[in-house]
C-alpha cells in the first residue's frame, strides 16, 4: 500500500520542474544580442513619434550587418551606430571596454561657460562651499553655482543658503554645464523658490509596447517647502550642457513668476532613462517617459531661455562672464 502511495506522490512531484515552463536565456551570440536590444527599445523607448524615427527601417538597415562570427568590438560598433539614430543623450550602451554616447545635444553649440573666469573674477578667494554648492555675494546679490545633480542635496543646506541670502536683492542660480543626476534634487531645490502650489510640468508614461501607447499627460505640481522660500527676483543661468535633471530644474523654475532664465537653451533630456542588459552582460539605458512644459511644449530638445545671451569674446578676453553680468544687471534693475 505504502509503495502505491509513494509512487503517486513521486509522480506528482515530478511536475515540480519550472524549467519546463521558463525558457532558457537567449544565446549569447551577436544576433540574439542585437535582437533583444532592438526589440526592447522598440517596445519601451518614448520618443519615436516625437523624433519621427522609423525604427523598423533602422532594423532593416542594421540587422544584415550583424552575424555570429563578428567580434565584440565590431558588434559594439554596429549597435552604437544604431542607437545613435535616437539622438538622445540618455541612450548609452556600456560594454565594459567602451560606452556609446550621443553628444549632439551640446557638441556644436557655444560653451557659454568658463569656470576660470567665474573663479578669478567673481568667486575670487571669498566664496563659500556649502555641500555641493559654491556661493558668493556679488553687489548685494546672492550667487549659487551648482555643478552636478549627481551630488545629493540635503534640504538643510539649501534652507541655510536661502536664510543667508534672505536680505539680498535677488539670487543668481547658475546651473550651466550641469549634466544632470538625481531628479529628486530638483524638487528639493525648486520648492525653496515656490510661492504657492503651481503646475510646473506634465509627465507621460509608457503603458504598452506601441510607439504611441502612453498615459494621458499627468500634471506635476510644485509646492513651497523648507523653512523659508526666496520670493525676490531669481535668475537661473543655463547653457547647452544643462542636461537631464538640470533641464527639469530649469523647467520647474521657469514656471515661477519671479524667476527668469538667462543664457542659452538647455541641452534637453526630458525622458527618464531606464536600464536593461543583454545576454552578453552589456548594459544599456534609454528614455522611457516624456516630459512636457505646462503649455505642452516637449522639453526633450531643451528649454529656450527667457533671455538668450551668449558669452561675448570681447568680455571673455576682459575676464567677464556675459551671461552672469546680464543676470546681475537684471536683478539690479
Amino acid at each position: 500500500m505504502i509503495t502505491r502511495v509513494l509512487i503517486i506522490i513521486i509522480t506528482l512531484s515530478l511536475t515540480a520542474c519550472e524549467k519546463a515552463f521558463i525558457e532558457k536565456d537567449p544565446a549569447n551570440e551577436p544576433v540574439e544580442n542585437f535582437q533583444i536590444l532592438w526589440e526592447t527599445i522598440d517596445k519601451k523607448y518614448s520618443f519615436f513619434e516625437y523624433k519621427n524615427i522609423n525604427w523598423d527601417s533602422i532594423y532593416s538597415e542594421y540587422r544584415p550587418r550583424v552575424h555570429n562570427q563578428m567580434t565584440e568590438r565590431q558588434l559594439f560598433s554596429v549597435l552604437s551606430e544604431m542607437l545613435h539614430h535616437l539622438r538622445d543623450g540618455h541612450v548609452n550602451l556600456d560594454a565594459g571596454f567602451d560606452i556609446s554616447r550621443s553628444w549632439e545635444w551640446y557638441k556644436d553649440y557655444p560653451a557659454n561657460f568658463n569656470y576660470s573666469i567665474l573663479r578669478s573674477s567673481y568667486l575670487k578667494n571669498t566664496y563659500e562651499e556649502k555641500g555641493p554648492f559654491v556661493t558668493q555675494v556679488i553687489d548685494s546679490i546672492g550667487y549659487i553655482y551648482f555643478g552636478s545633480f549627481t551630488k545629493r542635496v540635503e534640504p538643510e543646506i539649501i534652507d541655510n543658503i536661502i536664510e543667508d541670502f534672505s536680505d539680498l536683492k535677488g539670487i543668481v542660480f547658475d546651473v550651466r554645464s550641469n549634466g544632470g543626476g538625481f531628479s529628486t534634487n530638483v524638487e528639493i531645490l525648486a520648492s525653496r523658490f515656490a510661492d504657492k502650489e503651481r503646475l510646473v510640468a506634465y509627465n507621460l508614461f509608457k503603458k504598452g509596447p506601441g510607439h504611441d501607447e502612453f498615459t494621458d499627460p499627468q500634471p506635476v505640481h510644485l509646492s513651497p517647502k523648507g523653512s523659508e522660500q526666496f520670493l525676490k527676483p531669481v535668475v537661473v543661468l543655463t547653457n547647452r550642457r544643462s542636461y537631464s535633471a538640470t533641464n527639469d530644474f530649469a523647467l520647474k523654475m521657469s514656471a515661477l513668476p519671479h524667476v527668469t532664465v538667462v543664457g542659452d537653451t538647455t541641452g534637453g533630456g526630458g525622458g527618464t532613462p531606464i536600464y536593461k542588459e543583454l545576454p552578453n552582460g552589456w548594459t544599456y539605458r534609454f528614455s522611457a517617459t516624456i516630459t512636457l512644459a505646462p503649455d505642452k511644449f516637449n522639453v526633450e530638445h531643451g528649454i529656450p531661455p527667457d533671455i538668450q545671451v551668449d558669452m561675448r569674446q570681447r568680455d571673455i578676453s576682459r575676464g567677464l562672464d556675459t551671461i552672469l553680468e546680464t543676470a546681475l544687471e537684471l536683478i539690479q534693475q
Partner: peptide, 9 residues
C-alpha cells in the same frame, strides 16, 4: 510595476 517604470500605474 507599470509597463516601463517601477511604480504601479
Amino acid at each position: 510595476p507599470s509597463y516601463a517604470m517601477s511604480k504601479p500605474i
